[in-house]
C-alpha cells in the first residue's frame, strides 16, 4: 500500500508536468504573431503601465540622442517641404491624405531575441489598430500586432516573420526584406531577380503596395554581402533605423484601408 502510494505520487508529478507543458505549448502555438492572443492583449494594459513608469525615468538619459534624431528628421522634412512647394497650385502638390501619422513614445523595446517587439504608449483610444506601421525618424521600425486601450505592441523588423514589401530605389525593382536574426543592424533583401545585382550603398525603400507603410520610406542601404547564384539573388541590408536607440516613433494609419481591403476581397471572390 505504501509503495502504491509512492508510485502514484511520483506519477502525479509526471502528469502535472505534462499538463502544464501542454498549456504552455498551446499558448505558444495559438499566438499567431499577426493576430495576437487574447491573453497577451489583455495583459498589455498591466505591463504597459509598468513599462511606462520605468521608461519615464530612463527617458532623461536619452534626451540628447532623441533630440538629435528629431532634429535630423525635421531638417529632412523641411527639405521635402521646399521641394514640394515649387508648384504650389498645381495638382501635383495636392497633399496625399491617404496616410495619417500618430506620434508615440517607445516604452519597451527588445533587440536581442530572435523575435523582437516594440511597445508604445498609444492604444485603441488613440486610434491605433492592428497592422498599422511603425516608423522611426530614421526609417521603418515595425508593424502593430497587439493593442489595448492605452498601449500597443508592434512586431519589430527584427522578427522571424518579418517580410516587408520593398523596392530598390535606383531601378524600382520589387524585393522583400526579412531578418535572419544575426545582428540588429542588418537584415536580408530577398527575391532580387538574377539579372539585377545590387551594389553596396544602394538605397532600399518601402514599395507602398502593402497598405501598411506609405511608399518611399527608408528601410536601409545594401551592405557588403551580395549573394548571387540560385534562382534569385539576395543581399545584406544595413537598416537605417537604429533599433537600439528607438525613442520617438510615428504610427502610420492608412485612411483608405477599409476601402482597399474590400477591393481586395472582391478580387478574391472573382
Amino acid at each position: 500500500m505504501k509503495y502504491l502510494f509512492i508510485f502514484l505520487k511520483k506519477q502525479s508529478f509526471f502528469f502535472l508536468f505534462i499538463f502544464l507543458e501542454l498549456v504552455a505549448i498551446i499558448l505558444l502555438i495559438n499566438h499567431n504573431s499577426f493576430q495576437g492572443s487574447r491573453i497577451i492583449n489583455s495583459t498589455n494594459a498591466i505591463t504597459g503601465s509598468f513599462q511606462d513608469a520605468f521608461t519615464s525615468i530612463g527617458d532623461y538619459f536619452f534626451l540628447k540622442e532623441a533630440n538629435e534624431q528629431l532634429n535630423a528628421e525635421n531638417a529632412r522634412l523641411h527639405e521635402l517641404l521646399q521641394k514640394s512647394t515649387v508648384f504650389p497650385y498645381s495638382a501635383i502638390s495636392q497633399p496625399d491624405t491617404t496616410y495619417a501619422f500618430i506620434p508615440a513614445r517607445v516604452i519597451s523595446n527588445t533587440t536581442r531575441g530572435r523575435n523582437n517587439f516594440i511597445m508604445i504608449n498609444r492604444g485603441r483610444l488613440d486610434g491605433i489598430e492592428k497592422e498599422m506601421g511603425l516608423i522611426s525618424p530614421q526609417g521603418i521600425a515595425g508593424i502593430i500586432v497587439e493593442i489595448s486601450s492605452h498601449y500597443a505592441t508592434a512586431m519589430s523588423l527584427l522578427h522571424k516573420d518579418t517580410k516587408i514589401s520593398a523596392r530598390l530605389k535606383n531601378n524600382g525593382q520589387m524585393v522583400n526584406v526579412s531578418w535572419d536574426g544575426l545582428s540588429p543592424r542588418t537584415g536580408i533583401v530577398e527575391d532580387i531577380p538574377t539579372h539585377i545585382i545590387p551594389k553596396p550603398g544602394d538605397t532600399v525603400v518601402t514599395s507602398g503596395y502593402s497598405f501598411v507603410f506609405p511608399g518611399d520610406l527608408m528601410i536601409g542601404v545594401i551592405g557588403n554581402k551580395v549573394f548571387t547564384g540560385g534562382n534569385l539573388n539576395r543581399a545584406e541590408i544595413e537598416f537605417s533605423t537604429d533599433f537600439n536607440s528607438l525613442h520617438f516613433v510615428n504610427v502610420t494609419k492608412n485612411n483608405a484601408s477599409t476601402e482597399l481591403d474590400s477591393l481586395n476581397m472582391q478580387l478574391k471572390d472573382e
Partner: peptide, 20 residues
C-alpha cells in the same frame, strides 16, 4: 516573464521543464 517579454509560452515551457 512571458507576459512582460511578449514571448507567449516559451519561458513557461522552459521553466516547467527545468522544474521537472
Amino acid at each position: 516573464i512571458d507576459i512582460f517579454a511578449h514571448t507567449p509560452g516559451m519561458h513557461t515551457a522552459a521553466s516547467v521543464f527545468m522544474a521537472f
